[in-house]
């Protein structure tokens, strides 16, 4: 193990390390802690200039209550859910199929198609912006959730295909051969042999795509406007102009907006990290 395991080091360093850990974490999360402190302060503290002192009263419930009952925040959150969940389902479904086709079969153009998916996934969004916006307007889907969902599914298919194909590649191939010899139809091999083995990959992709799409901002401002379809990342700017300079409210609002992916991460940590670090180990 590198660096030297703590048990094999001097007593002094062991104690220093134990003390250093919480301090380092505190320092690392400082900006976030600042926001959390802001979000429970009363309005009066900001007018009195008591920014960093002890809150004069603890306003957790009233501040967060106002976020939920006194603003468009719940609508934006709901929009985010209605955009994110269908995208996750769509992108994962499409990429299970593309991953299966590219991972199992040998045919001319296989690698070419695979690399096209990877390359498209690296492209800067901006080069897609004008044509995709135009297409969405022409389809009558501008400022709708469906317009965003369709684009997200298509774009995420690139990354998901890379992920799925490499995962399927690592499955034991004799399994598929055995099924073929038994005369099992190809689509049944997909449904009954490959899909059940892909569960961990599907779980990992679901959490990853959920986080990516929930956190998307660029496409939200390009393809939607207003509280009917905008997700929470874009809605937060409208929220902030409603509570201009009311830092306690803006802080509470951003914390609420950030919670779903954070909760997803802490609940599905193993899958999340497995997905994110795919390929980091050979």
């Amino acid at each position: 193990m590198f660096p030297t395991p703590l048990e094999k080091t001097s007593r002094a360093w062991q104690l220093t390390y134990q003390g250093l850990l919480p301090l380092a974490l505190l320092f690392w999360l400082l900006p976030l802690i600042a926001v959390a402190v802001f979000s429970v302060k009363p309005d009066a503290d900001f007018t009195n200039g008591n920014y960093w002192g002890v809150p004069s009263s603890f306003e957790l419930i009233s501040n967060y209550g106002r976020v939920f009952f006194d603003s468009d925040m719940p609508r934006y959150m709901l929009n985010s859910v209605l955009i994110t969940v269908p995208t996750v389902i769509g992108a994962v479904a499409l990429s299970c199929m593309t991953g299966f086709a590219l991972g199992i079969y040998r045919f001319p153009g296989n690698l070419l198609i695979f690399f096209l998916f990877i390359a498209g996934n690296f492209v800067p969004f901006q080069i897609l912006m004008v044509p995709v916006r135009d297409l969405t307007v022409n389809l009558g889907l501008y400022d709708t959730k469906l317009g965003l969902v369709l684009f997200h599914i298509a774009f995420q298919t690139g990354f998901c295909t890379l992920f799925m194909r490499n995962f399927i590649r690592a499955l034991p191939y004799p399994l598929i051969e055995a099924a073929r010899v038994e005369g099992v139809a190809e689509w049944r091999i997909f449904v009954f042999v490959v899909l059940p083995l892909m569960k961990p990959a599907i779980a990992a992709l679901c959490v990853l795509i959920f986080t990516f799409i929930w956190n998307d901002y660029f496409w939200a401002v390009v393809l939607t406007q207003g509280p009917d379809a905008q997700p929470v990342t874009a809605g937060i700017t409208a929220f902030n102009s409603q509570f201009r300079a009311a830092y306690h409210m803006m802080s509470a609002g951003s914390i609420v907006a950030a919670i779903p992916p954070v909760a997803m991460f802490f609940l599905m940590q193993k899958h999340f990290i497995a997905g994110l670090t795919l390929g980091a180990v050979k």
Binding site: L94, S95, M97, T98, F100, A101, L102, I104, Y105, F107, N110, I113, L116, F117, G120, V123, I127, L128, V130, P131, V132, L135, L150, F151, I153, A154, F155, T157, G158, T161, E186, W187, F190
Partner: peptide
Amino acid sequence: IALTPWLFLVPGIAMFSIYVIIPIFQS
């Protein structure tokens, strides 16, 4: 065996072409 991969690829390739590949050239 020759057809199945293409059937599985069609929806993915169609979506990806419409929203990613073709827009690059349009730009």
